[in-house]
Design a protein around this nucleic acid. Structure first.
Lengths: 204, 204
DNA sequence: TGCTGTTGTTGACGCCGTCAACACTCAGCA
DNA sequence: TGCTGAGTGTTGACGGCGTCAACAACAGCA
């Protein structure tokens, strides 16, 4: 990106704003991202961000979108060949999902929280979240075809699985779960229960 | 209670604040609950609420606690005898849980959102949420004993079930789920998958 | 009747998001 | 080479917010 030396113009303020906002969120939550504070941290005036985002909410939406993209990359990176049972891949995805949330709680909150959505629907954000769902649907479809899970509407199954991991991530982040509970066990148990529930079985 | 006529003192401002805040939340979200606005709506000055709550966050915590109590009552009210399969009771609980969230989205968000928790741990809030969990654990234990679901740590099973319904409620509220999907079907499918996943089965 | 603690009011402070008016910079064209 | 206009950053100002401190009205009790 090349330091543009100290000039009147910043160089790439827009990108810097998104990055710095993400840092501030991880340090002090979304509420700490103030137009004035972020400007000052970037050595720029309080109104400068308005040249790149119409308002504070728009900046936060951009940060949330970046978070979804990061999460998507992380979930996709488990594609290490079709080795091991392919159901194992679904389990890994769930695990990585929850782990991402635990590692970046404030960012995760922002991604789903109303804070960014409170204005009218944000198409960018919906797209980012939507591609997460589509990836999940694809994986589920593959496992249906291999007979590992019940053949049903894969979209509905994806919603169920997403609900489970999102709910677990959310409860963990909001400290609603007894800290003495082993988090890894809980993650395993959650993904396992969902997979068992979706597993093909003879009708009873 | 009893209208105390128009006097200098309000009568029961504390209760009125909690009630009015809940109304404002349902109308315009938690962000619309402003010390100034709520005071004005109750015909009282902007600083009056500070005689009953140390700050705005404390007021919101009280509202969130009231929400948990309401939700708890609703989940418990499904105790209509031990009629029908008792697993059916678990399914009804999940259904009522999600329905509550859909009927009071902003209130539900507040109950779990960081907005109320962002200060140090709120013991009242934790207690209210905790009793929800305990009720769920109790019900699960009963069904374990009747052999309807797998015998395992009921607390962990409760967390899994809670995660699923909370996640579904959250995704629905945040409009992350395609509005064309039938919500009732999705709720049924989610609870069913969880129950199937917890159902006793011969080891494979 | 008067005292005391509780509850409500008003004024002030600093922080916030945002807008309007202005200033600097730079690329491209005459 | 110098001008120009679009793009980017700055400053001043406004209204709204949470909150505190000082003051005022009330209720109940001695």
């Amino acid at each position: 990106m090349a330091e543009r030396a100290r000039t009147y113009h910043h160089g790439d303020l827009r990108a810097a704003l998104v990055e710095e906002a993400a840092t501030m969120i991880s340090e002090g939550g979304a509420a700490s991202v103030t137009m004035r504070a972020i400007g000052s941290r970037l050595g720029v005036s309080r109104a400068a961000p308005y040249r790149h985002f119409p308002d504070r909410a728009a900046l936060l939406v951009a940060v949330a979108v970046a978070g979804f993209e990061r999460l998507n990359r992380r979930l996709g990176s488990g594609d290490t060949g079709a080795s091991s049972t392919s159901v194992e891949r679904l389990r890994r995805m769930g695990e990585q999902y929850v782990r991402f949330a635990l590692e970046h709680p404030a960012h995760y909150r922002l991604m789903y929280g109303k804070e960014a959505l409170e204005r009218q629907d944000q198409p960018e954000l919906r797209t980012a979240a939507g591609s997460l769902l589509e990836n999940l649907v694809d994986v589920i479809r593959v496992h249906q075809e291999s007979g590992e899970i019940e053949t049903a509407d894969p979209r509905a199954q994806a919603y169920v699985a997403w609900s489970a991991v999102h709910g677990l991530a959310s409860l963990l982040i909001e400290r609603q779960i007894d800290p003495n509970v082993d988090v890894d066990d809980l993650i395993r148990q959650t993904t396992q229960t969902i997979l068992d529930g979706m597993r093909d079985r003879s009708p009873d």
